[in-house]
């Protein structure tokens, strides 16, 4: 996480490309060195490869190889067809399964809700930065949910949102009929996402605050002297100055939403009601663990991986483009 604040503070024009490019110039430049020691030590020529080898081996053996195995499994059958090739059969079954369609739709919903998930910590961090009364207190309180495990958060909200729970008791005291927060298929997904945002925005808030630390206060003072309103300050000074932080938070929040909502789902709704809160992750777990369909689960994993890949590549593209604008 700390990369988020170190990068903007250094702020070299090519920072966005630094990660990928740094390696290649180094190897190119090493090409000049052998000229000095030409015919000399072969070991030195291989040294870079040997040094990189452990990292490459770890990635290949523990990441790529299992990944390829998983993709391979996804083209085989389950149960009686175990081990026989079924081509794209599992994928056809997946896309025909209304449950998996719901899971994909919910991924779309998450993408739509992403701006909300980023705006909340952004706004709160802005208020803390602008020193609203009690900002020290809020700073620690906002971070508090981030240290709770999803299971505990889920259990807490299960109690709060129960049909005979405190939230409905409050509502009925002002004359509103009780709502089945986690039992109504139209509402349940929003509740789970809302709780997820509540539980995780503390981390994004810290990243935002770190971003604010690099903000030049002179800009704010200048805006104030010019008579800018709070809204204008936020829109014309803070947002442009924090664009890199905002992008970083977008990336991490999206990844967090796609990969770490399992605990909450499992505790709060178990994918229900009526299967309305399925996400690909939960679907994979269900097929592998409950339905004994490992190959189908592999196919679903492969699709989730593709989604993550597309989302990740798009976001890297965005980051690169904004890096050029700087």
């Amino acid at each position: 996480m700390p990369m988020g604040n170190t990068q903007p503070s250094v702020r070299p024009a090519s920072a966005g490309r630094a990660g990928g490019a740094a390696v290649t110039p180094a190897t190119h430049r090493s090409g000049t060195r052998p000229r000095r020691t030409r015919g000399g030590l072969g070991a030195e020529r291989y040294a870079p490869y040997i040094l990189v080898l452990p990292a490459v081996l770890i990635i290949v053996l523990l990441r790529l190889y299992p990944l390829i195995l998983g993709v391979n499994f996804s083209f085989t059958g389950d149960g009686a067809q175990n081990g026989t090739a079924v081509g794209f059969g599992n994928y056809r079954e997946l896309f025909a399964d209304p449950l998996f369609q719901t899971a994909l739709k919910n991924v779309g919903l998450l993408v739509l809700l992403l701006p909300v998930a980023v705006a909340i910590p952004g706004l709160l961090a802005t208020f803390i930065y602008l020193r609203v009364p009690g900002h020290r207190f809020y700073r620690s309180v906002y971070f508090f949910p981030a240290v709770l495990s999803p299971v505990i958060v889920g259990a807490i909200f299960n109690l709060l949102l129960a049909f005979d729970g405190p939230l409905n008791a409050v509502l009925s005291s002002v004359g509103v009929d009780p709502i089945d927060w986690l039992g109504d298929p139209d509402i349940a997904m929003f509740m789970v996402v809302g709780v997820h945002i509540w539980a995780t925005f503390g981390m994004a808030l810290v990243v935002f605050l770190a971003g604010f630390a690099t903000l030049d206060p002179a800009l704010l003072d200048a805006a104030r002297v010019d008579g800018a309103s709070l809204r204008q300050v936020v829109w014309h000074v803070i947002v442009p100055a924090l664009s890199r932080t905002i992008q970083f938070v977008f990336v991490t929040t999206m990844i967090g939403m796609l990969t770490s909502m399992f605990g909450l789902l499992y505790i709060m709704t178990s994918g229900g009601p009526e299967g309305s809160t399925y996400l690909p992750e939960f679907y994979i777990w269900k097929q592998q663990g409950q339905m004994n369909r490992p190959a189908l689960a592999s196919a679903a994993s492969t699709i989730l991986f593709m989604i993550m890949l597309v989302v990740g590549l798009l976001q890297i593209k965005l980051l690169e483009r904004s890096g050029k604008e700087d």
Binding site: I68, L69, V71, N72, F73, F75, T76, G77, D78, N82, G83, T84, A85, V86, G87, F88, P294, A295, S298
Partner: peptide, 9 residues
Amino acid sequence: LALTGCGSA
């Protein structure tokens, strides 16, 4: 992979 589909789950 789709064509061969070797190995087994």
